[in-house]
Design a protein around this nucleic acid. Structure first.
Ligand SMILES: [Mn+2]
Ligand SMILES: [Mn+2]
Ligand SMILES: [Zn+2]
Ligand SMILES: [Zn+2]
Lengths: 148, 148
DNA sequence: TCCTTTATTGAGAATCAATCTCACTTTATT
DNA sequence: AATAAAGTGAGATTGATTCTCAATAAAGGA
């Protein structure tokens, strides 16, 4: 049994809930996507593999996956919420270009100790790291200057 | 003339646009609010002072204020976008409790040099710092343990 | 296996922040 | 005042997300 299945099952059982078929399919899909995804991408991914699950169930399951610590809601773009699985992945910064939409990730290593220190000082339990810098990537900045 | 008026006027004129009455009212309201605000709070603030401006105009003006560097879109809470004026204010981290909604700000001093270094390495022009940590504040964490 | 209970799901309706449309109004310039 | 261009307001529209509720599925006991 994969680790994320075990962890999700444990999380659900502790709440008196069940790892049902739709939830299992969503869980697998979430860990098959190696990028930030929104609900629609997840929905499509499931349909392509003939594992259709309703949007309602996806919307209901994502918060469970967040609370269990397996995924996080890490950015919002084009009016949609984007998630990514985080089990086994280090936290990172997101650099989001407002023009072309590209999302670049960089290490948080240098910064995380400081953040964790502040967290423990104020006894804040972090669930989501949304450390996002928005602006213009160099390509789009160059384009803006050309067309000025 | 206040500095933010001068800057906004310059920004607008550079784009061939005008500092109209509604825009001036929104600008003043934005700098009279010393906290994160959403469109509804801004709208109410203006109405209270008998300076009614349509929601459409508010929604149209906020991006101009963001692009001019006077305000930033710094967090999303309860399905709404929140802004804050930043002229003269140092960047900071936001600690957002998912339960009670409290937003605490802490200094970015220790972290900003690192972020700026990464930004210049990849020639990324930062427009918004959305450095948000979501989770549980100590009060809400204590409550959860009581009621378990 | 069948039965009962409780959790869960799917389809579609509802919500509501944000955007869009377009006729009307301001503003700047001559 | 006349003109042209920019800007505004009211209300319609959009679309992601949430809600409702009848129908299903899962678990455990008889
Ligand atoms: Mn990421
Ligand atoms: Mn702030
Ligand atoms: Zn770009
Ligand atoms: Zn709290």
């Amino acid at each position: 049994m994969k680790e994320y299945e075990r962890l999700f099952t444990e999380y659900l059982e502790a709440k008196g809930q069940r790892l049902t078929q739709p939830r299992r399919l969503i869980l697998e899909a979430v860990f098959s996507l190696h990028d930030h995804f929104d609900v629609e991408q997840l929905y499509d991914r499931l349909r392509i593999h003939n594992e259709e699950v309703s949007r309602a169930t996806i919307y209901r399951t994502l918060p469970l996956l967040v609370e269990s610590g397996l995924i996080q809601h890490s950015l919002r773009q084009a009016d949609r919420d984007f998630y990514e699985h985080i089990l086994g992945h280090p936290q990172h910064l997101h650099w989001i270009c407002r023009k072309c939409g590209t999302v670049v990730e960089t290490s948080l290593e240098m910064v995380l100790p400081h953040i964790n220190k502040v967290a423990s000082q104020q006894r804040f339990q972090i669930e989501d790291y949304q450390l996002n810098l928005r602006g213009l990537c160099w390509k789009c900045a160059d384009n803006e200057n050309e067309n000025q």
